[in-house]
């Protein structure tokens, strides 16, 4: 690297520090994934390689039920959050009205509220409207905290949107519906997809809110894992956690792929 040839520019020890930092960041994950392939019953003593624990996961009905709940909640919450964000973002981007900035800001506010505060609020809200904790309550609460995440890429996409394109489409004999389908949607799609994926990951990984608003029979995977840990860390827990990590990684890679592809292809910006 040319940077290191300029001695005065060099920050002593920066390279080593970076290495230590990465170890610190990914060490626990690597240990977790490694130990999930341990054949020993004890989670921390390595005796040999085995897929045993993953096999057991598939036979665990409680876990599969929790996984089903997690998927239902994440899919519905991410879809709803994406839809709401899209409509709101279009309205905010297209119109000038008093308090527009404030409304825009309100969309990101929940990012700053501590999870525990939001969780208590969500539980109170659910109880106040006479709903009992359960899948519906989970979907509602997850939708709420997913909106700011779904909103981020959608808003970014709209920021540079050339509204004259809609005029041009109308000018070229396309009805409102056709303009939506042929122009607005295709150009917004990368933002919509990215927003959906981000909301999906966030919902899937949530523990605190789910812990508060899930009821008996409607727990999600993180809540189930928390229950298991109270009996001690077993390789089974390691295997579940590893599976969650892998799903998250796949989603994240997908998210970046969607994002970078959209900024490369045929975009004049």
């Amino acid at each position: 690297m040319s940077v290191s040839t300029n001695k005065w520019r060099r920050i002593t020890g920066a390279q080593w520090l970076t290495l230590v930092f990465f170890l610190f960041l990914y060490g626990p994950l690597i240990a977790l994934i490694g130990l999930s392939f341990n054949e020993n019953r004890s989670a921390t003593i390595w005796t040999g390689f085995s897929f045993d624990w993953y096999g057991r996961l598939l036979a665990n009905d409680d876990l599969l039920a929790a996984a089903r709940n997690s998927l239902i909640v994440a899919l519905s919450a991410a879809s709803l959050a994406t839809l709401i964000s899209l409509l709101a973002a279009v309205v905010i981007a297209r119109n000038r009205f008093p308090g527009r900035k404030a409304v825009d800001g309100l969309f990101s506010m929940p990012l700053l509220v501590p999870d525990i505060v939001f969780a208590i609020g969500a539980l109170l809200f659910v109880l106040t409207i006479g709903l009992s904790p359960g899948l519906l309550a989970l979907v509602m609460a997850h939708t709420a905290f997913c909106i700011p995440f779904a909103n981020l890429p959608i808003r970014a996409r709209l920021q540079g949107f050339d509204w004259a394109l809609l005029d041009a489409s109308a000018d070229l004999y396309a009805s409102r519906g056709r303009t939506m389908i042929r122009v607005l949607m295709p150009l917004m799609m990368p933002g919509i997809l990215a927003g959906f994926l981000l909301a999906f990951i966030v919902s899937l990984d949530d523990f605190i809110v789910s812990f508060f608003v899930s009821g008996p029979g409607s727990i999600t995977v993180p809540v189930y894992v928390f229950g298991l840990i109270r009996l001690g860390v077993t390789p089974e827990v390691n295997a579940i956690a590893s599976a969650i990590v892998m799903i998250s990684v796949v989603m994240t890679v997908l998210f970046f792929f969607v994002n970078s592809r959209s900024s490369r292809k045929g975009d004049p910006r």
Binding site: A164, L165, D171, P268
Partner: peptide, 14 residues
Amino acid sequence: PVNTVFQSYALFPH
């Protein structure tokens, strides 16, 4: 029966 050449051209990028 009127078409426009826009100032920003407004070509469809996709």
